[in-house]
Design a protein around this nucleic acid. Structure first.
Lengths: 305, 305
DNA sequence: ATCATGCCGATCATTATTGCACAACCTATC
DNA sequence: GATAGGTTGTGCAATAATGATCGGCATGAT
């Protein structure tokens, strides 16, 4: 080897290419940006080639930098494969297990299930990443993911735990106003980057006005609670919220189902299987909640007009 | 990533698997064995699996260790490819250029050629590795290799610079003894792990005895100089050695040709092309030496009976 | 038995690497 | 312009990694 290069430095090069600069790479790698700068310099020294064009706006990779990044990507893929393969090999009913789910799902449905799992299998070090972003199971950022989606990524395997329904919810104060004067227009909380209100609502409440625009379910929920307006929410959210009720006259709306997913490589791992079985079974008993069936309502009430 | 693993640590795992222990790996990596031990432990921690069974005799890899080593091998291949690719991209007539050749060839033929090359292209930082072992061009241990071989490895490209002949050489004192009493048996220096003496010698000197066994050409040459015995040597060696002469009555013996080789990835790199052209051209003028043609002998003398 | 050689593990001083804090600079946006 | 938020570069102190050395423990030769 003419210049023995540092494999880790290739990581820094890769993230610098991906994020276009030191700062972004530093955040991704959870190190100081000065470190990234020094490692990049070391890599350039070792490879005998400039890898980036420095500019105040950021780092732009040279051809050599792109080539190095391609190599780093391949190494990364090898590393991920190794990581998954080792996890799959580890068949003990102990050790680490990382799961991820949308924050709201953790709060409203998963928390007690996870708590029971921990007491049942205390040797499994359960790590829960409640995040809005979807972690990358292929990159092994987590072993198991709960997803609310129409269809899972094709490289993942898992099961459709439950169908879901949504409804339109209003805060108590707004509901009282509307009951007192049904001719009032419906104050509506709109989701940015989303299509308009559901068709079912257009028919039942043709007179609406947008009271607020949000891009986050937490904000929408707060808005409903404060009676700023009504909005569509999955039933497991709205029905569990005190001081919030379904808007009358609007039928249930189909919603994306709930999945529990894992990477194909981990499908047969004992820890993973044990967890998914446990979680799926417990979630089954919550199906009325997810499907919006109130006590006393039959399954036939699902998505009726 | 559950445990962000260190790519460099995979290197330590790989070398530990290759050498069967900390010490060997430490030598290969040119670090202290304590470092290897610590890096291995760190890797095991990060991957959550034991990679080696510790024993006083050495480290034996577990299944997980073997798997990690396989991954490391792939990363290594990617790294080598990147290294060559970056070298090939560098088309300047300056910068590093590493060549390797058998020690004896450097001493007897290459040295003046390399010296002239350095004065002609002073900006090329020529590094010469005179080694008995064959460096790995695929691993980019060198850019160019001189090899004495029947056929080069198939992944390499290059040219057959010259055919070679060998002859049987004796030291002056032994030669005088033999001339004084031609009935004496021929003291012979045998190469370990080699087939017996050449057929041509069996006929010309049927009466031989083994005076010494060596496994190194330097030792053989020293033995001939000290008149311990005669042995077969390539002509470029024996003919250039003062106090050593060809044994009469024995014709020239075909010998493995001389190649100048490089990796296919570097075939079009300016530095490499410039060097190989220069060296090949200069070696051409030495063909009589390699082919054993003495001054006054025609080419027809080649390998005659 | 005894010695020599090779291996691994542990300790400690040294060295190298990292993070922090600050400075300098560019660029939108008001 | 002025400002706020973004970028990269640099000096210094804290931290982590390393190398050297020693001891214990096998194995194999004398």
């Amino acid at each position: 080897m003419i210049g023995m290069m540092d494999w880790n430095d290739l990581r820094y090069v890769l993230e610098c290419v991906r994020h276009g600069g030191l700062s972004g790479a530093a955040r991704a790698l959870r190190v100081n940006h000065a470190t990234v700068s020094r490692r990049i310099s070391a890599a350039e020294e070792a490879m005998g080639a400039r890898l980036f064009d420095r500019s105040p706006a950021g780092y732009r990779p040279t051809d050599a930098g792109l080539e190095a990044a391609r190599a780093a990507e391949q190494m990364e893929a090898v590393g991920h494969e190794l990581s998954r393969s080792l996890s799959a090999r580890d068949q003990r009913l102990s050790g680490p297990l990382t799961i991820t789910a949308p924050q709201l799902l953790v709060e409203h449905a998963l928390a007690p299930i996870l708590k029971d799992f921990r007491t049942l299998y205390p040797d499994i070090e359960l790590k829960v990443v409640a995040a809005n972003r979807q972690l990358n199971l292929t990159a092994h950022e987590a072993d198991v993911a709960f997803r609310i989606a129409e269809a899972p990524a094709e490289t993942l395997v898992g099961r459709r735990v439950s169908e879901q329904s949504a409804a339109v919810y209003v805060g108590r104060e707004q509901a009282d106003r509307l009951r007192a004067d049904p001719t009032l227009p419906l104050d509506w909380i709109r989701f940015a980057h989303w299509p308009g209100p559901p068709d079912a609502l257009r028919q039942a409440w043709p007179d609406r006005r947008v009271a607020m625009t949000v891009d986050d379910m937490y904000a929408a929920l707060a808005g409903v609670r404060a009676s700023i307006g009504a909005t569509r929410m999955p039933c497991f959210l709205g029905d569990a919220e005190p001081g919030v009720e379904r808007l009358w006259g609007v039928p249930l709306i189909p919603y994306r189902p709930l999945w529990i997913l894992t990477h194909a490589d981990l499908r047969r791992t004992r820890r993973v299987v044990t967890f998914t079985e446990f979680a799926a079974s417990r979630l089954q008993s919550l199906r009325p909640l997810f499907e919006g069936r109130r006590p006393g309502e039959g399954a036939s009430a699902l998505h009726d007009k």
